[in-house]
Simulated scan of single mutants.
Amino acid sequence: MKKIGITGQNGFVGRHLYNTLGLYPEEFQRVDFQKEYFEQEHKLDQFVLQCDVIVHLAAINRHGNEQFIYETNIGLAQKLVDSLSRTGSKAHVMISSSTQEEKDNLYGKSKKEGRQILANWADENGAKMTGLIIPNVFGAFGKPFYNSFIATFSYQLTHGETPTIANDGEVKLIYVQELVEIIISEIRGGIGQVEYFVEPTAIKKVSEVLAFLNDYKTKYFDGGEIPVINNIFEHNLFNTYRSYIDYKNHFPVKFTQHTDPRGAFVEVIRLGIGGQCSFSTTVPGITRGNHYHTRKIERFAVIKGKALIQLRKIDSDEILDFYLDGSEPAYVDMPIWYTHSIQNIGEEELYTIFWINEAFNPENADTYFVEVKK
């Protein structure tokens, strides 16, 4: 079992990497890191001594003072090297750099020089080092106005704001989970490369991405419709967009009921894609679910009875409660990386319709069981 430590563990890429490593408990042991360790040599040394692999992600991307960015990023790389030297570590060290390296700015310069600092240490000590040169990363839970324009636009479109394009150029993109899989592959068997150029998985104009996001707002956020999804990029972009919705205030969404003397009619879901639709009954007091997905899009629609749907992001203690009643049919969509459950809290059978965007495949289930209530 390899022991993996991640500086910047609580950052955008770091949190995705940390959570994904947790899906392989028999292969990896995660060594926790806190940013305060950079200011406490003995704590940093203890961390380094435990690690077989260190993924150095800690850095500053944006700040009002470019010189501060430069000095901070160089300083973090140097502190890590100093600790590696003090402890005599032979860990495989990976560092995230950026395609900004070749641009005339202090951020890019800091990433290139930080990568070289670690390369020099590895060369002098016979250690393995990988310098990941990464294009623009997007994905769920990125920090708006900081991590990417996609995070910013998605946040704005789900919070009543209007995005504006400053420069409509082509952008090389990679989804955060695609990047994480590359890092894990390198952890498993990489030979180390001072310059490991991570290829983008999509190249899009800013206006093209915004057109997709505007479509998601109109169809999904405002209308409840699952939009057309043609490829993996659009799937990843849609899941990214969904992660910025204020779930506590947006859900549950009540259906529009059409009634006449015969009874009532409700449209449960309108789809631009296929998937699997199922129906369940649940007796009083029983809970279903307690699992999460990393890619699947899922909707729970209560049409009869009373239900409590609960969601919890797997690295959070906050539980979101949604009470649904079949007398006013409504739905809640499940965000990725949130464990979720549905409980019959009424006195009659609960009738629920479930839709998910892909049929269940036991060999690639994307279903991980974690209790909502810790």
Rank of each mutant, 00 (worst) to 15 (best):
S83G: 00
F149W: 12
T287V: 13
Y37N: 07
E347R: 14
D315M: 08
K143R: 13
H42E: 11
E298S: 10
E36V: 06
A91Y: 04
I314V: 12
I184D: 07
G8S: 09
N167F: 15
E225P: 04
P329S: 02
P329A: 10
G285C: 12
S185I: 02
I182E: 09
H42M: 10
F138P: 07
F221S: 03
G190D: 08
F149A: 10
K109T: 10
N290W: 01
H56F: 05
T287W: 14
E267P: 03
A211H: 10
L132N: 14
I182Q: 08
E234A: 13
G346H: 13
G192T: 01
G192C: 00
I54R: 00
L21E: 09
F47W: 02
L132F: 13
N120V: 05
N344H: 08
F33V: 06
Q310V: 14
N19Y: 09
D215C: 03
H293I: 02
T164R: 14
I134P: 05
I203D: 12
N73V: 04
I69Y: 07
F47Y: 05
L44Q: 00
K35F: 02
V302K: 04
R115A: 15
I226M: 13
P252K: 03
K204V: 04
Y37F: 14
Y220W: 12
G263K: 15
W121C: 00
N231E: 13
Q67I: 11
F28N: 09
S327C: 05
R86I: 03
V137I: 06
Q193F: 06
E358Y: 14
K172P: 14
F33N: 04
T152Q: 13
T162D: 14
P25T: 05
N105L: 14
V48H: 01
F360P: 07
I150G: 07
D168C: 06
T152S: 12
S110C: 06
V209C: 11
Q310T: 15
V137M: 07
V171F: 13
S327I: 11
N344C: 06
L80V: 00
D45Q: 06
D246Y: 07
K204G: 06
Y24L: 08
E124F: 00
Q67V: 11
I60Y: 03
N120T: 13
I314D: 08
